[in-house]
Design a protein around this nucleic acid. Structure first.
Lengths: 154, 154
DNA sequence: ATGCATGCAAACTCTTTGCAAACGC
DNA sequence: GCGTTTGCAAAGAGTTTGCATGCAT
C-alpha cells in the first residue's frame, strides 16, 4: 500500500521533528494507523500488537495516540456507537461511514469535500485543525441481516 | 424561538408515539435540547435543570438522552475535546464547529449539505440514520486570546 | 550518560445499571 | 391501580496518571 507508506513516513517525521523518540512501540503503532483501513480503537491497536510486543501496555498506546492527535498526524473520530474512540491515520478531509449495527468504520471514496472544507474555513472564521465527516447508518451487510431477521418466514 | 418550539413538539410527539411517558423531567430535558444553541452535555443539561428540579438525577438525564437518540429525535455529536458527549436537538444535517480551546460547539449556518447527504446515501449503499459534520479548530475569540498570549510584549 | 518512554497498577471520570419509591396514564 | 420512571448509590468501562525500570539518542 503506497499511500500507507507515505503516511507512516509523515508520522515518524512528525514525531522526530517534535523531539519525541522513535521507540519500536511508537513505530508499530504508527504502522497500524498508517496501513489499516479499519479506523482502530486504542484497544484494537493494542490487541494487534500484543504478538509483536507481549508486554506492551494499553497506556503506551493511549499516550502515543494522544501525541499523534496533538501533533495533527492522526484524527480522533470519536466513538462509533461502541463507546470507544476510533482513530484515523488519514488526516485529509474525507467521509467516514459508521455502521450502527456492527460498529465498523470505513471510508467513502470518491466524494470530494475539499470545497466544503474551504467554504467552512472562509465562512466560520475558525482556524480549522481538522474535521470529522461521519455518516451513520446500516451497512449493506447489516441491512441484509436485519431484513432476514425481520422476516424469517419468507 | 420559532424553530425551537417545532423541535420541542416533534420530540414530545416522538416520545408519546413510542409509548414513553411525558414526565416533567423529560419535557424539561427536551426543552433544553430544543431551544438551546449550545449543544449541551448531559452534565450541562442537569446543571441547567437543577433549579427547576432540585432532586433530578444525572441518571435520568442520561436515560432520557438515550431514548431520544435511539428514536432519532436528537443527535449525539460525540466529544468536543472535553471527553463528554455533546447533544444536538437539530437532527437535520448541518455543520457543527468545535473550538478546541474553549470546547464550545456552534452551528455553521448557510452552508448547504443536503446535496452531500444525498450523494453519500447513493454511493455508500448505507441506510443512513444521521450524520455528524464537525469541523475542529480555534474560534475567532480563542484565536485572539492565543495571539495575545503568544506575543505579550507587543 | 542523560533523560524521555515504557509498563504496571491505581485513580479518575463519564456513563450505565439495579432497585425501591413515586407518579403518569 | 398498573406499570413505567425517577432518584439514589454502586458498579462498569474507557482513559489517564504516577512512578520505578529500561532504552533511544
Amino acid at each position: 500500500m503506497r499511500r500507507g507508506r507515505e503516511r507512516l513516513e509523515a508520522m515518524l517525521e512528525g514525531l522526530r521533528a517534535s523531539g519525541l523518540r522513535l521507540t519500536p512501540q511508537r513505530v508499530a503503532i504508527c504502522e497500524v494507523l498508517a496501513t489499516s483501513r479499519s479506523h482502530p480503537t486504542a484497544y484494537e491497536i493494542h490487541r494487534r500488537l500484543r504478538r509483536q510486543f507481549p508486554t506492551m501496555s494499553l497506556a503506551t498506546v493511549y499516550k502515543t495516540l494522544d501525541a499523534l492527535v496533538r501533533l495533527g498526524l492522526v484524527s480522533a473520530l470519536g466513538d462509533a456507537g461502541d463507546g470507544m474512540v476510533h482513530y484515523d491515520g488519514d488526516t485529509e478531509p474525507h467521509i467516514n461511514l459508521v455502521c450502527l449495527s456492527c460498529h465498523r468504520v470505513q471510508d467513502l471514496e470518491g466524494v470530494a469535500v475539499r470545497a466544503l472544507h474551504r467554504t467552512v474555513a472562509a465562512r466560520s472564521g475558525y482556524a480549522l485543525k481538522g474535521a470529522r465527516l461521519v455518516y451513520y447508518g446500516l451497512c449493506p451487510e447489516c441491512q441484509r441481516k436485519a431484513q432476514t431477521a425481520a422476516s424469517p418466514e419468507a
